[in-house]
Design a protein around this nucleic acid. Structure first.
Length: 426
RNA sequence: GGCGAGUUGGCGGAGUGGUGACGCAGCGGAUUGCAAAUCCGUGUACAGGAGUUCGAUUCUCCUACUCGCCUCCA
């Protein structure tokens, strides 16, 4: 979703006019735990080095997945550990201005000092306290106050600060890094709706209090969560999987992207096998239809749909209509129309040349087509079609689309194509 | 318990205060050796209730259900 937004903004304002920043949180308990486990297992290097190593690995995986999905890289990808100084400076300013306080080695944000706290997520501090079910840390002045800085023990990475050796709380990194890289005001902040509260709420409070004249993020977009076959993804249900798992199963990144874009980002997206198949078939059809086309200018209706709060499903509808128009004129080459459609799909990050290998069968089907044609010609004479039908059935079973007409035999891989099943058919 | 989001035809999924999107599947027909693909035709869905309105799927309120967040961590 955010990749489509990025592509849209680049399309409208020009590639140079858009700055896209996405941070990596490498002050992270899971990374720390892995690094610590490796150290205890005898890995060489300091804990800090092992953490950096683990971070590198994680980022590498992440990049590989995002690349496979056809997502453009952001202009900058700052890491929390590289901006600790900026975070400390911001916390100091917050304390100096009375928006935060130190207590028992922690620095805490004073939520009551920011009057609009809760505005983004539509909550009020009083309501939240009223409904709270959880124990409150004793050193908090107010139950909703959150940690800016917390102490580290010997097994946890830490940095020296005015409040002792410790590490930043989760929220401060985004405020500090966005200020350093984008300034006190920037246009759009995105994220999953699971982050809206408390993370984004806290970011706003910190940033607005530290930089009262800035606007922080002018617009917020939150995307809904993913589901699987109608259920939420969870390890206990056994339906937890990652983009990497899908890719490893042979689901193309382009197919994953299509499924994601077929639902509006603000609604829960349900990943199902059926959607995967439909997406695969649609993309195959489009790729075939636009074979040899050269991308020109994107269709205005498609751009308008995307610009209308990223109505990607609406854009896809328009693409279906374009495909239909082109297909309805088989006698024309529709060079112009194909170019427009191709450019339009590419606005969505689909049908990019580098994402198309998956539609290739990986095997030359023409020997099968020849054999089927030969059998068929013979069968036309004898009126005994059993051999033809047997081969046809086997091909269909292997996921090959079989088209026989007066003009000849045509084979094409379709959804569920399985080259292994073709063995022994010749 | 608090807060938020969602509920559209068989399935998926847009959208709109008033002429039944779109995709897939289905059904009928053309075509085909049979199919497939293609083409033509075909479907009165907007969770329930109340209200506002000349008119609501679209606005308001209530109810039900689903999901998320509300502790650590990110």
């Amino acid at each position: 979703m955010f990749d489509v937004l990025y592509r849209l903004l680049r399309h409208i304002y020009g590639a140079d006019a858009v700055t896209y920043v996405r941070n990596f949180t490498d002050v992270d308990d899971k990374i720390n735990a892995t690094a610590l486990a490796r150290k205890e297992a005898g890995a060489s290097g300091t804990l800090e080095e092992l953490i950096a190593e683990r971070t590198e690995e994680t980022i590498g995986w992440y990049h590989a997945d995002m690349d496979a999905l056809g997502a453009l890289r952001p202009n900058q990808e700052p890491r929390a550990t590289e901006w600790i100084g900026a975070m400390i400076a911001m916390i100091e300013k917050l304390i100096a201005d009375g928006h935060a306080y130190e207590k028992e080695g922690h620095a805490l944000f004073r939520v009551r000092s920011y009057k609009d706290y809760g505005a983004l997520s539509g909550r009020s501090v009083d309501d939240m306290i009223a409904g709270a079910r959880v124990e409150i840390a004793p050193f908090k002045e107010d139950p909703m106050d959150f940690v800016l800085w917390k102490p580290s023990d010997a097994d946890t990475p830490g940095w020296d600060s005015p409040w002792g050796r410790g590490r930043p709380g989760w929220h401060i990194e985004c405020s500090a890094m966005s200020y350093e890289l984008l300034g006190a005001s920037f246009d759009i902040h995105g994220g999953g709706n699971d982050l809206q509260f408390p993370h984004h709420e806290n970011e706003i409070a910190q940033s607005k209090c530290a930089h009262p004249h800035g606007e922080f993020a002018r617009f917020w977009r939150h995307n809904e969560m993913l589901q699987v076959e109608g259920k939420k993804m969870s390890k206990s249900l056994g339906n937890f999987f990652t983009v990497r798992d899908l890719l490893d199963q042979g689901v193309a990144g382009e197919v994953i992207r299509f499924v994601m874009l077929s639902t509006h980002y603000s609604k829960p997206m349900d990943w199902t096998e059926k959607k995967r198949q439909e997406a695969e078939q649609t993309l195959r059809n489009w790729r075939k239809l636009l074979e040899g086309a050269e991308a020109s200018g994107a269709d205005q209706d498609v751009v308008d749909a995307i610009a209308d709060d990223l109505n990607t499903a609406g854009a896809i509808t328009r693409l279906h209509a374009m495909a239909k128009e082109i297909a309805a004129n088989p006698q024309k080459d529709c060079f112009f129309e194909k170019g427009v459609m191709l450019a339009s799909t590419q606005m969505l990050g689909l049908l990019l040349p580098e994402m198309g290998e998956w539609v290739e069968a990986g095997i030359d089907l023409s020997p099968f087509a020849d054999k089927l044609a030969t059998l068929r010609i013979a069968a036309m004479e004898t009126k005994d079609f059993s051999a033809v039908d047997a081969l046809k059935t086997a091909l269909l079973d292997a996921g090959v689309e079989v088209r026989m007409s007066k003009a000849g035999v045509e084979l094409a891989p379709s959804a569920g194509f399985d080259a292994a099943k073709l063995e022994g058919l010749l």
